[in-house]
Amino acid sequence: MAWFSSPSDATTRLATAGYLADAATATTSFLAGALEKPLLVEGPAGVGKTELAKAVSRATGADLVRLQCYEGLDEARALYEWNYKKQLLRIQAATDGQAWEETHDDIFSEEFLLTRPLLTAIRRDAPTVLLIDEVDKTDVEVEGLLLEVLSDFQVTIPELGTVAATRRPFVVLTSNASRELSEAVKRRCLYLHLDYPDTEREKEIVTSQVPDLDDKVATQLVTAVARLRDLELKKAPSIAESVDWARTLLALHIDDLDAKAIDDTLGVVLKHSSDTERAVRELKLR
């Protein structure tokens, strides 16, 4: 199955799935499907990196398998594990007459294998989107583990042999760039940097997420957010925060986003006190 037939097809199908992709995102998603290469998505928090993977799975009708990365993630959590307790039971339940060879072969079989996300995604027959989230949070050793999976889509289990993918999953890796990934991982991936959208696209996104929002307020909101991003803030507001802000304004029945309204609701978008002070001063809110 081809994932998307062309970049424009990617745009339309992602849009139906509720994800408004710009040209670069659409082209890169198309290529990731067509070249069957993993897609590494980087960018600031809250611009829709994880959402892209979910949207691809919705748009193509594939199932999503997710591996959330964290410090200390190991092979047993990411790839596979032997069900040790069940193996013990099997040995204890074995009759005395049974030869050791037989038991040995028996306990290292499918029945005792616990598959974790990476192996699950590879073994599935149905189309799958594999999301490896926040890959920069893992230790360097896990990257080595990912290499075999990402380049050949196969996993070698010493007792069972090599399991190769029957159907290559659509792999999305996301990263906040809190650590540089190794060149080896990057080389195997297509790269996409998601950034804050321009005002028009952001307005589309906000209105699609919060359809009840008044058009005038939406325009005021995205201009205000764009101005906040121009200031040198510790954490610039992301799309997720714009949407939150829109919901807040709706809940408070604010139909004109003037200086006072911005000042009152600034806490929704800015999360550092120094950022708030700076915004109040630069935007002359008080």
Binding site: A23, A24, T27, T28, L31, L40, E42, A177, E180, E183, K186, R187, C189, L190, Y191, L192, H193
Partner: peptide, 11 residues
């Protein structure tokens, strides 16, 4: 965009 996706791996 295609060149960017395949060649540039750092923002």
């Amino acid at each position: 965009d295609t060149y960017a996706a395949t060649l540039v791996k750092r923002q």
